[in-house]
Design a binder for these strands. Structure first.
Lengths: 151, 151
DNA sequence: TATTGTTATACTCTATAACTATA
DNA sequence: TATAGTTATAGAGTATAACAATA
């Protein structure tokens, strides 16, 4: 940082990561437009694909606000990609499951996404992609993320 | 991709990148709260720090909408971190420059950010951080990003 | 009283278009 | 007519709190 070049400043690594992360998010969003899904809808379907779960469990998996999940599930249910039914054992609970149509959309979206990902990372060899994954998995995403109210 | 484990699905690399990019963005935002800056305010100051420029030039550098830049500069000018003056050569233009106070805030923010970045990447050696930077710089952030209207 | 899910509301960000003043 | 900057407005996304049903 002390030794900077003449006119060009080196962008901080965190800024670079944030910028390209936003780019990846935008890429995902665009790739999924043809499926009528947002990245979050897709992640929801992905979790549902492993079996029925309560909304509470989904909230934990997706790390979203309960009210956000309600909206997501309303969309999926309207399009008949998922459905809610009461848990007979605890009638407060909703058990959410994916429909066959939902599973189909998920599979198609997975293919579309694989192609889009391929384009995004064409300039990285498979080895380098694995390396990138490992490096990303070793950054401290949530060290003091608990102090999130404000300070 | 074909060979997945029993219950765990491997998260797509693009999803991983988007997720950790959002994490980095949140970290930046929190680290800068004490400066009263958002990451974008800081980027603006960083560009201004290399010399006075027109708003049009800033729009290109920051890749934001002109109306967004207006709001950013209003904030910075209210806090006397930057100022606008008319370009005598073309009175439509505003020449924007950083103030001494703005340069001071920028320097302090740079230090704060260096510390926060250090924490974010503690588990990566300097070599690995350079490697991560190189890998990030080689992903295709804007291949068909021009087709952004909708399709 | 606590928990699950829902609704309503407000706040931030962003995108768009209309407007002004200059050229 | 085109350009630089501004303003106003609407839309998406998110966060919060109040609420109904059930435990």
């Amino acid at each position: 940082m002390v030794a900077g070049e003449a006119g060009e400043t080196t962008e901080g690594l965190a800024f670079l990561l944030a910028r390209h992360g936003a780019g990846a998010q935008m890429m995902l969003r665009r790739a999924l437009v043809s499926s009528g899904l947002t990245p979050r809808h897709m992640m929801t379907l992905k979790h549902l694909d492993t079996g029925p779960v309560s909304q509470q469990a989904l909230v934990d998996m997706l790390e979203v606000d309960p009210s956000v999940l309600v909206a997501l599930l309303n969309d999926l249910e309207r399009d008949e990609l998922a459905l809610r039914r009461r848990d007979p054992a605890d009638r407060r609970r909703h058990i959410v499951e994916i429909t066959p149509a939902g599973a189909g959309v998920l599979r198609r979206s997975d293919e579309i996404l694989a192609e889009a990902e391929g384009e995004l990372f064409t300039r990285l060899s498979p080895t380098e992609q694995t390396l990138l994954r490992d490096l990303l998995n070793r950054i401290n995403v949530s060290p003091d993320q608990f102090t999130c109210t404000e300070d």
